[in-house]
Design a protein around this nucleic acid. Structure first.
Lengths: 188, 188
DNA sequence: GTCTATAGATCGATAGAC
DNA sequence: GTCTATCGATCTATAGAC
């Protein structure tokens, strides 16, 4: 019989929404208690270090998702081009086709970069490295693979910024399309 | 004889530093008074609407800088490729070769997007439009020009995110180099 | 494990003297 | 035009009952 009582992991999605919407400084415990449906007592029971620990848990959750759905599949020994196409589809799904921002990117630009520098740096480094290895296996040289991987990760983050700025998610779709094309031509 | 007393415009640079470092929510009047050297009385004399008006003034200042040093020069009737090269140099200088973030981009990803949606949207729209027109004059088709301009603005913002995330400003230099090359090949 | 009550600090903003 | 004093609200975090 499944446990009915709340678990720490049940709060992560709601915490993510609050931090995505208000940033770290702007996310108040008042809204967090409202969105999670838990009082401060329960929250501090699950997260003794308070808001800092809540944000760390969300960042870890995001990282785990990308590890499972993007970084690890990129290392699949089968056709690397299939793995890369799988990455684009997972990324498009995760960011809701440009309507959702990247919490790691937003934290990097905010007053939170120093506070969360390790998870932020890890996330982008692992992404770039995994994509570089996949591109190497498609036949690109080491230099081509490194530059193309950086170009892809840069463009995805930039597209999220511009889509948000111009309130036009289509920027994200166009960017993904362009990046797929870019990889196809780089292999010729 | 020059006025010795402070003017409103004297505070903009310091305000920009504070907002860049702490974001909007995170920027406290305590730090603003410290960095500007003005008490709250003086600040509210210059900015009756408080922090909101201070941030608006900073965004307007950034916009004016780009209008004068990037958008208008892009329309220079002389060689459009010279104008585009001038854009890259101005952008590299403004963002301190990747060590400085874009306040408009940061505000777009934060809890400030709704509050400052007009200046944020205007900034990126004017940039993209100005670059599109310059690219048109280099001989690109309308579609090529629009897509390439969007690609350039997206990549610049993305490079600022990644440079900040990985604490590696070189990402920004590599991205600008790649974009120059991209425009050169698009014209062939 | 969940709650309410509240501490203690800091917030943005205002008042009013000079 | 600049300052100090201070208001009232809100913030994170804690204490302690159940």
């Amino acid at each position: 019989m499944p446990r009915e009582i709340a678990e720490r992991s049940d709060t992560i999605a709601a915490l993510g929404e609050v931090f995505r919407k208000h940033g770290y400084s702007g996310a108040s415990l008042a809204e967090i208690t409202e969105r999670t449906g838990l009082g401060k007592g329960s929250l501090y029971h699950f997260f003794p270090d308070g808001k800092q620990e809540m944000a760390e848990a969300v960042l870890e959750d995001v990282s785990r998702w990308f590890e499972a759905h993007v970084f690890t599949p990129l290392q699949d020994p089968a056709d690397p081009m299939d793995a890369i196409e799988h990455m684009f589809e997972a990324v498009d799904a995760y960011f809701h086709s440009g309507e959702r921002i990247c919490l790691l990117g937003a934290f990097a630009l905010g007053d939170t970069r120093e506070r969360f520098k390790a998870p932020i740096n890890d996330y982008f480094t692992r992404w770039t490295d995994a994509l570089t290895r996949a591109l190497l296996r498609t036949g690109l040289t080491r230099t081509q693979a490194r530059h193309t991987a950086e170009e892809v990760v840069v463009a995805i983050q930039g597209a999220l910024v511009i889509a948000r700025s111009r309130q036009d998610p289509q920027v994200f779709a166009r960017t993904l399309r362009r990046l797929r094309q870019r990889i196809a031509t780089a292999r010729q």
